[in-house]
């Protein structure tokens, strides 16, 4: 077993104690057989020592006083957080959606199922999802944007993104009156991001502080792999 039989990446991983036992045993045999392998391991140790020495020296040059303003700013941030009211159900839902347990595919599938239930309720005679007895309208001024009055788009959801409910008129020449604040039961559309993806979500703020999700539309998937 010689130096030539051990590739440098494997040697680096051996130095870090990250090899499985059988591979580590192979490197140790090479270490015994070839002094050049042992010298390379010593070199790895010295590179690490150089990095630690350099960064240690740099960190020691920064006086403790430089860190005091940091804690002051952290405290101010904490105070601001504490002063904020507890998040409502919608904020809690978005937080959940963004959390590590809510993968996009799961979120879309789950919400689609919820949408089917919601629309079934809304379309049923006497359904109280809309005070006017009509389907919920997307609060939008975009003439091309469709209200989710059709059955839940489980097969081919539209790729056309409705405007944000609070994003103002579709065209600059439209009077501001064309985009009134959405009534309480109108669906709002917001841009959201969740793990590895982004999309738009339509939801209705309920009468008693509840939120009903109508549809989540995922935009083109993004690569979560960091380009490192």
């Amino acid at each position: 077993m010689t130096r030539a039989s051990i590739d440098p990446e494997t040697l680096s991983a051996y130095f870090d104690g990250e090899l499985p036992p059988e591979d580590a045993a192979r490197v140790e045999a090479a270490l015994r057989a070839d002094p050049a392998v042992a010298r390379e391991v010593e070199d790895l140790a010295r590179v690490g020592a150089a990095v630690r020495a350099c960064l240690g020296a740099e960190a020691r040059e920064v006086p403790e006083a430089r860190f005091e303003p940091i804690w002051d700013r952290i405290e101010r941030d904490i105070d601001a957080q504490v002063a904020q009211p507890a998040p409502g159900p919608w904020a809690r839902f978005v937080t959940w959606l963004r959390g590590s347990h809510a993968r996009p595919a799961f979120a879309v599938a789950g919400v689609a199922a919820a949408a089917a239930v919601v629309f079934a309720v809304l379309r049923a005679p006497g359904g109280d999802g809309n005070a006017a007895g009509a389907h919920p309208a997307v609060a939008t001024t975009d003439p091309g944007a469709k209200a989710p009055s059709a059955p839940a788009p489980s097969a081919a959801p539209s790729t056309e993104a409705p405007r944000l409910a609070h994003s103002g008129p579709a065209r600059a020449d439209e009077p501001p009156a064309a985009a009134p604040a959405p009534p309480r039961n109108d669906a709002e559309v917001e841009f959201i991001e969740f793990d590895g993806g982004s999309g738009r979500i339509e939801h209705i703020e309920g009468r008693r502080g509840t939120t009903t999700v109508i549809w989540v539309r995922e935009e083109e998937p993004t690569d979560t792999e960091r380009e490192l």
Partner: peptide, 10 residues
């Protein structure tokens, strides 16, 4: 804090 700073400056 100093260790976090050292990692960051590194």
């Amino acid at each position: 804090h100093r260790r976090v700073f050292t990692v960051a400056v590194g």
